[in-house]
Design a protein around this nucleic acid. Structure first.
Lengths: 143, 143
DNA sequence: GATATTTAAGATAAGTTTGTCCTTTATAAA
DNA sequence: TTTATAAAGGACAAACTTATCTTAAATATC
C-alpha cells in the first residue's frame, strides 16, 4: 500500500505531534527509536518533510525537529502525497496509462469506491487526531 | 497498491477468460500483446499461475495457455495472494510487526474498514465477471 | 525419428527502493 | 572565537522488483 519511507514518515510525524507544543523539539535519534526505524534513512525522509514545510528543523546543539500548531492539522493524505506521490489515490489499479470513465480498466468501477474510501479517510485524518491515540496509550508507533 | 507483476497477472487472466471455452488456447505473444506487457516477464508470471493451478499450459506447436471452466470462477483475491502475497489484505498499514486489536497502530481502526472493503471486493469478483466487461467493450485491458 | 514450435527454467542485467557512511553547514554554549 | 552538537547533503551499497536473454524440455507435424 504505502512505501516503507511513507510509513516511517507518518509514524514520525505522529510521534512528534504527541509532544507538548512549545516543548516539542526532538532529535533524530529519539524519533527513530520511538518508531523503530533506521536512523539515516529516517533522516532523509524528515529532510523531505522539512522542505515541504510539514516539519521544521533546527541545527546545532539542542537542535532537532519541531512541528508547529498548524502543521499538526496536516492530513495523512498530504504526507502520502509528499512521500509516495498520489498514484495510490488517483492511479489505475491495473496499471493502464489512460484509465478513465471513458476508457476504464477491468476493475475501474469497483476500485473507484475503494480509492474514494481510502482518500476520504486519509483526507479527514490529521496528525493531531492520531497523536491522541498514542498519548492515551490506545495506539502504538512500534513493534 | 499491487505490484506490476500482479497487475499483469490479473489482466492476463482476465484476457484468457474472455476467450471462448474449449477454443481458448492462446500463446504468450498474444497475451502480452493483448495486455501490453513485456513478453519474457509475463512468461515468468504465467509460470507461477500454472504452478498454482489457476491456469494450464501446453508446450509445443499449437501450445499455449488455457483457463478451464472452474478456474474462470477464480477470484481476483486469489491472484493477488499468489503473486503479491496477502500482505495487502492482512498487513499493518504503518508497518508494525505485531499490529492487532490489542496492539493497534495509529491508523488500525480506520484502515480496517478499508482493508475489509478491498478484500471483500476482491473476494467477490471473479475472472468471469471481469471478462464480461471486456467482451462487450465496456472495459479495457490496455492503454 | 527429425524438425519446428512453444512453454519452463536458469542466469543475468537494469531499475528502484531501502539503508549506510562520510563530509558539510548551522548554531548553541563555553 | 573555539568547540561540540545536530541536521543537510552527497556518495555509495544492499536488497528487491522488473525485465531480458539463453538453454532445456515437451510435443505436434512432417
Amino acid at each position: 500500500m504505502f512505501s516503507k519511507a511513507c510509513k516511517y514518515a507518518i509514524n514520525a510525524m505522529i510521534y512528534i505531534s504527541t509532544l507538548p507544543q512549545g516543548n516539542d523539539r526532538v532529535g533524530l535519534k529519539d524519533i527513530s527509536q520511538a518508531i523503530n526505524s533506521p536512523e539515516a534513512f529516517t533522516a532523509k525522509i524528515l529532510q523531505i518533510l522539512v522542505k515541504e514545510n510539514l516539519l521544521s528543523s533546527i541545527k546545532g546543539p539542542n537542535g532537532g525537529f519541531e512541528i508547529h500548531e498548524d502543521a499538526r492539522k496536516t492530513q495523512l493524505y498530504r504526507i502520502v502525497q509528499v512521500i509516495d506521490g498520489d498514484q495510490i489515490f488517483t492511479g489505475c489499479a491495473l496499471g493502464l496509462e489512460k484509465c478513465s470513465e471513458d476508457h476504464p480498466c477491468a476493475v475501474h468501477n469497483k476500485f473507484k469506491a475503494i480509492r474514494e474510501h481510502l482518500a476520504g479517510m486519509m483526507m479527514t485524518t490529521s496528525l493531531e487526531d492520531m497523536a491522541r491515540g498514542i498519548q492515551n496509550g490506545t495506539n502504538f508507533l512500534k513493534i
